[in-house]
Simulated scan of single mutants.
Amino acid sequence: MEFCPSCSNMLKFELPNMGHNSRLFCQTCPYVCYIEKGVKIKRKQRLVRKEIDPVISYDDMKNGPTTEVRCPNCSHDKAAYTEMQIRSADEPATIFYWCLNEKCRHQWRED
């Protein structure tokens, strides 16, 4: 949707007619903008995916409270945990677990 730079009304689209290109025109003033047939790409920009930092790191978790719960990955019997309210207030909190086995460090959650 484009607007007229002189009177700020919405421009109308007109299909090519009698050898003229497509155009956008204003119904209230004489403004006309012809539309070119081809699109020119001025430069290509490569998108780079940013690294995502965890909200809770493993170092924060291993110094926190622990509980005896079995890891689903390695069956280790101790895990660090934290509880967060990630949904609305009337929903139960989510518990995040981290396996304390140094070789595993598996993370899971209970909703």
Rank of each mutant, 00 (worst) to 15 (best):
R105H: 10
D59V: 07
M1W: 11
M10Q: 15
F3T: 12
R105E: 15
G19F: 00
P54T: 04
I41G: 03
Q85K: 13
E83H: 06
P72T: 03
Q85E: 03
D59Y: 02
C71W: 00
C4H: 00
R23C: 05
C33E: 12
F25G: 00
C33I: 12
C4A: 04
E110S: 14
G38H: 15
Y31Q: 08
S75Y: 13
G38M: 14
R46F: 13
C29Q: 02
P16E: 01
Q27Y: 07
L100W: 00
M84D: 07
P54D: 02
F3K: 09
N17L: 13
M10H: 09
E83F: 04
V48W: 12
H106A: 06
N9V: 11
F96A: 04
G19A: 04
S75I: 10
D59M: 05
Q85P: 02
N73G: 01
D77Y: 10
S6M: 15
I52L: 07
H106V: 03
M61E: 01
K78S: 09
Y34D: 10
A89N: 12
E68S: 09
P5H: 07
A79Y: 00
C7D: 06
K62G: 00
A80V: 01
S57R: 06
A89H: 10
V48Y: 12
E14R: 15
T94H: 00
C29H: 01
D60T: 08
D111A: 12
K42F: 08
D90S: 10
